[in-house]
């Protein structure tokens, strides 16, 4: 996203980003005793990151963070599950909690730590990862879906995977003409095999039903982009 943004917006966004994240961490840490917690903090961080992406663009932000947000979410879930497993080590039931409180710690005074906090951090990470992933995917895919799919496929696709759906966009009264032309072109492209000759457009074939083209699954590989 390389939209022009005003310098004021950029500056304010940066400031808001840091403040929002400070607040988020504050909410996360005090969640056990005061309003706050993993969910709220996670949403706050996610919204601030999305705000930042409006300024710097999703691509540069992704480059900066390097990690795919969905991995953050996965790690979060893992942390939450493992935090639940901790009590098993001492023979307590799953998700049993332990809390410690020190009252006379230098500098910060009262200090609190408990396994619920670890769990909450997991929740926080899941919420952040999921929200950021949703918004980023939507932002980039509406501009360049092919690019998003390439990137995701390079990250996660199994080498055995094949696209399962591949069908023309036909059937809407709004785009019938164009879609029918597209279908006609596809038929021609199929007939011409791999040839790259641009198909003729403007064929009035709206009324003529296509003669039983193969189902989506049966198409030969040559057609795949």
């Amino acid at each position: 996203m390389t939209t022009q943004t005003s310098i004021i917006f950029q500056r304010i966004t940066l400031i808001v980003f840091f403040i929002a994240n400070l607040v988020a961490v504050y909410l996360l840490l005090r969640g056990h005793n005061f309003p706050g917690g993993g969910f709220i903090a996670g949403v706050a961080t996610a919204v601030s990151i999305v705000l930042l992406s409006f300024v710097s663009g999703v691509e540069s932000l992704s480059r900066f963070f390097r990690v795919d947000p969905i991995r953050i979410a996965t790690v979060g879930l893992l942390i939450a599950v493992l935090a639940g497993c901790l009590p098993l080590l001492v023979g307590k039931p799953y998700l049993e909690t332990f809390n410690w409180k020190w009252y006379d710690v230098p500098v910060i005074g009262e200090f609190y730590f408990g396994t619920p906090l670890i769990f909450d951090v997991g929740v926080y990470l899941v919420v952040v990862g999921v929200l950021v992933k949703i918004v980023f995917t939507l932002m980039t895919s509406t501009f360049n879906l092919a690019e998003v799919m390439r990137k995701e496929a390079s990250l996660y696709a199994s080498p055995l995977e094949e696209p399962i759906e591949e069908h023309p966009v036909v059937g809407s009264d709004i785009f019938d003409k164009e879609a029918a032309a597209a279908a006609e072109n596809r038929q021609r492209a199929q007939g011409a095999g791999e040839s790259k000759t641009p198909p003729e457009t403007g064929m009035k074939t709206t009324e003529a039903p296509a003669p039983e083209p193969p189902r989506a699954e049966d198409k030969p590989d040559s057609e795949k982009p």
Binding site: M149, A153, P163, E165, R186, E223, P225
Partner: peptide, 10 residues
């Protein structure tokens, strides 16, 4: 989103 493919004609 990921399971969407279009053919060259499209």
């Amino acid at each position: 989103i990921m399971r969407y493919r279009r053919n060259p004609a499209e």
